[in-house]
Design a protein around this nucleic acid. Structure first.
Length: 279
DNA sequence: TATGAGCGA
């Protein structure tokens, strides 16, 4: 009766705080507001970057009007209800407690669920994080994704939890992807992007494929271009070029997903087209 | 070496 569900009670309005009688109402984590926390994250990111070699620095895009690279687009198309993130690439020992520790500093983590196999009880390697607000989840996504996980040699892999809402890519342009093999073991998404981005402005994103169980690179990856001309140019120009310590071997990527904006042909249609051509 | 991606038991 004190508060309605789903409605923020007006009692949260700022009230004068008596310093000698300051007490928390009921929440154990320090009541840090979002603004403070974002500043804290920024500082943390800076200090991290200062301790990292330049090729590992988070990508800073100088231009203002640049489309978001990967996961920054919010899936909420109209509603702000998605507050959960999917987390993958977890090792078998990374349980709820570990993940809680990783994100405790946000003070906004509501719950953690790590999925385990029903028979074996082993962790399936992914889980879900729920935050107090979608804005918080988005901050976590952008701040943590791709950064090193504590006590491990691999990076966080985060994304929005779908829950049937599905993530709408507002990107209507198709991707032109190349396969990059022969990568050195230390090549990351960032380094791969750093290698291509300066030469090809249409680079949308890169992915180094990692072994889910070990977290180590499988030695190959992908680079997505927005421009087909640059894709083809890169295939000839960057083949054999050095990335980290080894020359890359570049080939066409087998498209696992046809096209972002266009409609794909079904097999029947394609066969119909072929037979129609012979007819 | 090789063609990504994993969503709540």
């Amino acid at each position: 009766m004190m508060q309605q569900s789903g409605v923020v009670p007006p009692q949260m309005a700022p009230m004068p705080i008596d310093p000698q009688q300051q007490q928390y109402q009921h929440a154990p984590p320090p009541p840090m507001n979002q603004q403070q926390w974002m500043m804290l994250q920024a500082q943390q990111q800076q200090s991290q970057a200062a301790a990292m070699p330049p090729q590992l620095w988070p990508q800073q895009v100088p231009q203002a009007a640049v489309p978001p690279p990967q996961y920054s687009a919010s899936p909420a198309s109209g509603s702000d209800e998605i507050r959960s993130l999917w987390i993958g690439d977890l090792q078998p020992w990374m349980d709820e407690q570990y993940i809680n520790t990783c994100f405790y500093s946000t003070g906004e983590l509501v719950s953690v669920k790590v999925i385990r196999n029903k028979q074996t009880g082993q962790l399936e390697g992914y889980g879900f994080l729920e935050f107090r607000s979608r804005a918080t989840a988005e901050q976590v996504l952008q701040t943590y994704n791709g950064t090193l996980m504590p006590n491990s040699e691999q990076n966080f892999r985060l994304n929005w939890a779908t829950l049937g809402a599905g993530e709408r890519r507002t990107d209507d342009s198709p991707d032109y992807t190349i396969f990059v093999g022969d990568l050195a073991a230390d090549v990351t998404d960032y380094l791969l992007q750093e290698t291509f981005k300066p030469h090809y402005l249409s680079v949308k994103g890169t992915k180094v494929v990692t072994d889910r169980t070990t977290g180590r690179s499988k030695g190959y990856g992908f680079v997505r271009f927005g421009d087909e001309t640059e894709q083809m140019r890169a295939m000839s120009e960057m083949n054999g070029a050095l990335c980290s310590t080894r020359p890359m071997r570049i080939g066409p990527a087998a498209t696992k997903k046809p096209i972002g904006g266009g409609q794909q042909y079904e097999k029947g249609h394609r066969e119909a087209l072929i037979s129609g051509a012979c007819n």
